[in-house]
C-alpha cells in the first residue's frame, strides 16, 4: 500500500510548526500505524532528514503512550483502538493521511507529534493516596463487593491515561480522564476514606492545568480506546456536588 502523509513537524515547544508532506511506500496492510511511521522514518534517515518524533511504548494498546490525531480523530477513529493497534488495512491504498499531535493548551508540543501530557499525572498526584491497613495481605473475599460495582469500577479503571479524550474534546476538557479516576475509587470500599477530598482536589487541579470545561459533546467517549463511558462524568459531577455541599 502507498500513502501520502501530511505530518506536523515542530522543532520544539517555542518554534512554530507546520505540516510537511511525505510518501509512505510499500506498506504492508498488516502493519500498525506506528510501524508504518517506522518505515517512513527509516527512509527519512537514509535521506538525511530528521525522523518524525512520536510517543510509543508497549505497542499493544495498554500503556497509553501512543497518541496522534489521524485525519482529525485521536487514535484514528477505529472503535476501542489505540494508534499502535490501528492497522493500515483500515485505510485505502493511495489515501492522504493527516497526522497531528494531541492538541490542548495543557498539552504543549515537545517535538513534532510528541506532547507533554504530564498535566494528567499532576491531576493524579493531586488525587493523593488511598488509606490502607498495614499488615499482611488481606484474605481473598474478606471484603465482599457487589459484582456490578466491581465491574463498573473496573470499567473506569481501564483508563490508560492516553489523553485522547482531551484531544477529541472541542473544549480540550479532561473530564473523562478525571472522572474515570474518580469513579474508579469512589465505587470501591478502599476509596472511601479520601473520597470527598479526592474529587475536590482533582477537579481543582484539572481546572488549574488549563483544561477546558465540559459541555457534554461526548466526543471523548467516542474516541476513548478503552471505551470509558460518559456516565463516569455524571458520577464525578455527582461526587463533586456532594463534596461541595458537605
Amino acid at each position: 500500500m502507498n500513502f501520502t502523509l501530511r505530518v506536523w513537524r515542530q522543532k520544539n515547544a517555542r518554534e512554530k510548526g507546520c505540516l510537511e508532506t511525505y510518501q509512505a511506500r510499500d506498506i504492508s496492510e498488516d502493519m500498525s500505524f506506528l510501524e508504518m511511521l517506522d518505515v517512513v522514518n527509516e527512509n527519512l534517515v537514509k535521506d538525511g532528514i530528521e525522523p518524525i518524533h512520536f510517543d510509543h511504548d508497549c505497542r499493544e494498546g495498554i500503556c497509553g503512550a501512543c497518541s496522534l490525531v489521524i485525519n482529525g480523530i485521536p487514535h484514528g477513529g477505529k472503535k476501542g483502538c489505540t494508534t499502535c493497534e490501528l492497522r493500515m488495512r483500515n485505510f485505502a491504498d493511495g489515501d492522504t493521511i493527516t497526522v497531528e499531535p494531541f492538541r490542548a493548551g495543557a498539552f504543549p508540543v515537545i517535538k513534532d507529534l510528541m506532547v507533554d501530557r504530564s498535566a494528567l499525572d499532576r491531576i493524579m498526584q493531586a488525587g493523593g493516596f488511598v488509606s490502607a491497613n498495614t499488615g499482611g495481605a488481606p484474605d481473598a473475599n474478606a471484603l465482599p463487593i457487589k459484582k456490578d460495582t466491581v465491574e463498573s469500577a473496573m470499567d473506569a479503571a481501564a483508563c490508560i491515561g492516553c489523553g485522547a479524550c482531551v484531544a477529541a474534546c472541542k473544549n480540550a476538557s479532561a473530564m473523562l480522564f478525571v472522572s474515570a479516576k474518580v469513579s474508579h475509587l469512589a465505587q470501591l470500599p478502599q476509596g472511601q476514606v479520601e473520597r470527598v477530598e479526592r474529587v475536590r482536589k482533582m477537579v481543582a487541579r484539572m481546572d488549574f492545568e488549563g483544561f477546558g470545561n465540559c459541555t457534554n459533546y461526548y466526543e471523548c467517549e467516542a474516541v476513548c480506546p478503552k471505551e470509558i463511558s460518559v456516565k463516569n462524568i455524571a458520577r464525578m459531577n455527582r461526587e463533586f456536588l456532594k463534596a461541595i455541599t458537605k
Binding site: 506536523w8 490525531v69 492538541r103 490542548a104 488549563g210
Partner: peptide
C-alpha cells in the same frame, strides 16, 4: 473553551 486549545487542528 476556545482558549483551552490555542493551536487548532488542521483537520
Amino acid at each position: 473553551n476556545r482558549a483551552s486549545r490555542p493551536v487548532r487542528y488542521h483537520v
